[in-house]
Each structure stands twice: as C-alpha cells, then as structure tokens.
Design a protein around this nucleic acid. Structure first.
Lengths: 86, 86
DNA sequence: AAAGTATTTAGACATTTGTCTAAATAATGC
DNA sequence: GCATTATTTAGACAAATGTCTAAATACTTT
C-alpha cells in the first residue's frame, strides 16, 4: 500500500493514469504528452508498474501500457473506512 | 489535491488518520502512540491540517485533533473514475 | 549486418522530505 | 510571578525523489 500512495504522489503520474483510463497507450505516445524527457517518463511508468497501478506489455518495438484498476479498488476500500460512520 | 496526496504519502500520517477515525485525540496522546519525538508528530499533524484532512482546536493547554472526512470524499470521487467502466 | 526507431538503464544533481535537538510560546497551578 | 505541562517553531542534516544527459538494449527495415 505504501508503494501505491507513493506512486500517486506525483501530478505527472496521476495524469498518466487519467490518460490510460481512456485508452491503452505506448510509452512514446505517453511521453509526447508531457514536456519532459523520455527517460523521466519511463521512470514514472516504472513506478506506476511497480505499484501495480499499470500493466505493461511488449509488442514489437512498442511497449503498451494499460491501467490496472484492482489496486485502485484496494485503495478505495482503505478510503471508504473514513467516510462510513464510526 | 496535490497536498492531499502528499499528506497521505507517509505511514505515520496515515496511522494518525486511522486513530482519529476512532476518536478525537490531543497532540500529546497522538505523539505517545509513536516512537518519535513530539516535534516530528507536530510536523505531521501540521501537514495533515494543511491538507484539510484534520481539524484542530485549542482547549486550554491541549490541542484537540479531529478527522475531516470531506476532503477524503473528494479524493474518493477522483478515485471512483477509475473503477467505473470507461 | 548496418542503420533507424522505441524504450530503458546508469549516473549525476538539485530539491523535497522526515527526523532530530534546542529553544520558544502558551496555559495552569502553586 | 515562577515552575510545570502541552505544543509548536527554528534550524540542521541525511535520505528519498524528480529530473536531466549519455549510453545501452531491443526490435525492424533495408
């Protein structure tokens, strides 16, 4: 869970998640959406993947990224404890 | 929203929130639950307060902290977008 | 096999973060 | 008013983080 919170604690990574919510994207497409070098984006994707928030799959020269909502659902459960009555 | 994610990105602060979910506590009570100096806990409480996740109220020499779930609900909304079908 | 495209790895560097100690502020009780 | 208790502020410091440039890896096309 620690890794999930860590991964979400960056605006670039959260934006990547929001983009992947719409459709799967390859690393290059993602990088082009930001004014940041490819290695930086690659690093962000790595953190998201390690946190289990995205999956990656190599297809030819491209690496496709997709969102993995199951971890997000775990986080949701953690958060729900605060909104329910004590 | 940035501040909220920042505040949640620390195990001590998350534990404080979980404790405050059960009951309001003063700063000293909270500090005693951790093997950490009071100034460190005070700093964590400050970040939680600035993120809007807790409220504080002075009463005599004590400062009472309580959880504020409205910000947590905003976060919940952000998160729900990922679990719903695209 | 050589050149080109897509992506990651390695290493450096400045900034941010979490913790500490020491000192300051504020309320209470003698 | 002085000592005691509760809490915060200030300042220092090591560790973690986000970004960059340069180089490496892997696949494709010629």
């Amino acid at each position: 869970m620690n890794q999930v919170f860590k991964a979400l604690n960056d605006p670039t990574r959260r934006q990547i998640l929001e983009m992947l919510r719409e459709r799967d994207m390859n690393a290059g497409e993602i990088a082009e959406c930001f004014q940041m070098t490819w290695p930086s984006i690659s690093h962000h994707l790595d953190l998201l993947r390690k946190a289990g928030l995205v999956d990656s799959q190599k297809e030819g020269q491209f690496v496709w990224y997709s969102i993995n909502t199951s971890v997000m659902e775990d986080l949701l459960k953690w958060m729900l404890q605060f909104t329910r009555k004590r």
